[in-house]
Amino acid sequence: MLLPDLSFLVIQFLSGLTTAMFLFLIASGLSLIFGVLRVLNFAHGSLYMLGAYLAYGLVAWFATAPGKFWVAVLGASIGVALIGGIVERTLLRRLYGREAVYQLLFTYALVLIISDVAKLLWGTGQLSVSRPPILGGSVSLFDQVFPRYNIFVIILGPAIALLFWFVLHRTRAGRIIRAAALDREMLGVLGVHVDRLYTAVFMIGAWLAGLGGALVTPVVTIVPGMDVEVIVNAFIVVVIGGLGSFWGALLGALALGQVMSFGILILPRFSLVFVYVLMAVVLVMRPWGLLGKPLRG
C-alpha cells in the first residue's frame, strides 16, 4: 500500500470531521433523552429521516424563494420537534414507570410507522437537495478541494455543542434538566412540573435529530432506510462515548467519524470492521462508555 500524501490525509480527516458533526447532532439528542427520560429512543433515527424528508419537501415548496434552504432547515427541525412533542405527550408518556421493554417496543413501532408514512408521502426513490448557493462550490486546501458546505458543518457542530453546554450549565432551565436526570421525584417535590419538562426535553432531542436530518440533505441522498443506518451509528456513538453523557456523545462522534473515514482507506470493503473493533475495545475496558458513568441502581 502506498503511503498517501499529507494533503490527502488532511482532506480525509476533514471529511471524518463532517461525518462526526452529523453523528453528534443525532447522538447528543439520543443521549439527552435517555439521560433525563430514561427512554432509549429507537425512533431517533426516524426523526432524523423525517427532518431530511421535511427539508426536501420545504425546499420544493419554496422553489423560487431566496434562502429557501435555510427556511427549510428551520421549518423541518421545528416540525420534527413538534412531532416529537406530540408523540411524547400523547403516547410515550403512558409508558413511563413501566418496564423498559415496553418503551423499546413502542419506539420500535414508531420506527416502522414513520418509515411507512415517509414511503407513502415521498415514495421510495432517491431524493436530493442542492446546496444553498452561498455555500456552493469548494475551497482549495493543500492542492486539494473540499466542499464549502462541509466546512460550514464542521464549524456549526462545535457551535451547537457550545450552545448545548451553555444552556445545560449556565441557565436555570439547564440546571433543572440536569437535576431531572439525577432525581425526578425530588424535583417534583421541589415544585417543578416534571411532566412538562420531559416534553420539552424530548422536543429538544427531536429538534436536534431533525436539524441533523435537514442539514445532511445536501451531502447524502434521501432514501428510505437512512433512519436505520443512522440509528445504528448513533447507538455506536453513545456506546463508545457513554449513554447520557453530553461530552461522551461528542467524543464518540469524533472517534466514529475518523474511524469510518480512515477505515475506508485501509480496508475499503470492510471498513465497518474498524468500527466494531473500536466498540468492542471500549466495551471491554469501560462497559459504560468513555465518559459515561456506571449505572446506579
Partner: peptide, 26 residues
C-alpha cells in the same frame, strides 16, 4: 407533589436527596 409544593408545603426527605452532580448553589 409539584402542586402541593406550590401550595406551600415543603418536604425535607430522610435520605436528603441532594442533586449530587450539581453544586451547592445550583
Amino acid at each position: 407533589p409539584y402542586e402541593i409544593s406550590r401550595l406551600g408545603i415543603g418536604l425535607v426527605p430522610e435520605e436528603r436527596r441532594i442533586f449530587a452532580d450539581l453544586t451547592v448553589w445550583e
